[in-house]
């Protein structure tokens, strides 16, 4: 019975399941990955046999070999985040302030795509943007697109797919922080003779900033490591770092390079995110 327990222990007991989970599924794999990342092939060994030699040069080689894919990952992720923000902000704004009795339905609609698998939705985009979907033939018949131009297998399709797939992650935090804005602050702004635009710029946007930061992080981080969109909607010329890690691990059976790349990606994301949060100056995330 909890009554007999000294009071101090209770919080730790409550934390235990969380710690146990993190230890098993986060700490242990990370340690294992770190160990793998500095291994080298056993001389005369078979495919997939490695030994620990503390080869930190793995990191340098892995990075230098794949600079292009790293750069592409961050460019695509940034673009997808910006597009998602541009789409989600008006959407969240409308739901929070203008939707009236439809608010709940609209929120359900934002989440609805999650009822289907991520993979299926991406494959659906491949059909929609494909040669015999309705987009390409329509654009072609309107002469907005050349006969030889295609959408799938281009960076446009990959960024579009990422934007679409991560849109709810952007919309929901934005909605949460817009919804929380006290309407009286907006009224007060009007009372002080600010017009609609000024009120939006000086009151609404700053107050929704925690939502913007949370939304951009929730979009950018998974987008930078994503490989599904690039492999389904892209071509060999649009491969991202996630695709490289996958192929290193499963196709080349080069576990050390895959592990080194994973760590480099993690570090790069961590640095970018830290800089971003510092710059955004938001202590409180939602």
């Amino acid at each position: 019975m909890s009554i007999t327990l000294p009071k101090v222990r209770v919080p730790y007991l409550l934390l235990f399941p969380g710690f146990a989970f993190l230890f098993t599924f986060f700490i242990l794999p990370i340690v294992n990955l770190a160990q793998t990342s500095t291994q080298t092939p056993i001389a005369g060994g078979d495919t997939g046999q490695y030994e620990q030699t503390l080869a930190f040069s793995n990191y340098v080689n892995a990075f230098l070999d794949n600079r292009e894919q790293f750069a592409r990952s961050f460019i695509y992720a940034t673009l997808a985040t910006l597009f998602a923000l541009a789409i989600a902000y008006p959407l969240a704004y409308a739901i929070a302030f203008k939707s009236g009795k439809f608010k709940n339905i609209l929120l359900v609609l934002v989440v609805a795509p999650f009822f289907t698998s991520f993979l299926l939705r991406t494959i659906a985009w491949k059909q929609i943007l494909g040669e015999e979907g309705f987009v390409v033939p329509t654009l072609r018949s309107l002469h907005l697109m050349g006969q030889q131009t295609t959408i799938t297998s281009t960076s446009v399709a990959v960024v579009a797919g990422m934007t679409y797939n991560f849109l709810p992650f952007m919309t929901l935090p934005l909605y949460a922080s817009l919804e929380r804005i006290d309407p009286r602050t907006i009224e007060a702004s009007g009372d002080l003779y600010a017009n609609g635009l000024t009120t939006f710029r000086r009151v609404t946007v700053p107050l929704s900033l925690p939502g913007v930061v949370a939304g951009t992080l929730l979009t950018f981080i998974p987008a930078a490591g994503d490989y599904v969109n690039a492999s389904i909607l892209g071509s060999p010329n649009t491969k991202m770092i996630g695709n490289v890690i996958e192929s290193r691990y499963f196709k080349i059976v080069d576990y050390p390079t895959a592990a080194a790349l994973s760590f480099t990606l993690m570090a790069a994301i961590l640095i970018l995110v830290t800089l971003y949060i510092r710059k955004a100056g938001t202590e409180e995330l939602v």
Partner: peptide, 15 residues
């Protein structure tokens, strides 16, 4: 060869 050739083949595909 298995490792080296697979690597070259993967690189050609942008991986």
């Amino acid at each position: 060869e298995e490792t080296k050739w697979a690597e070259a083949f993967q690189k050609a595909q942008g991986n």
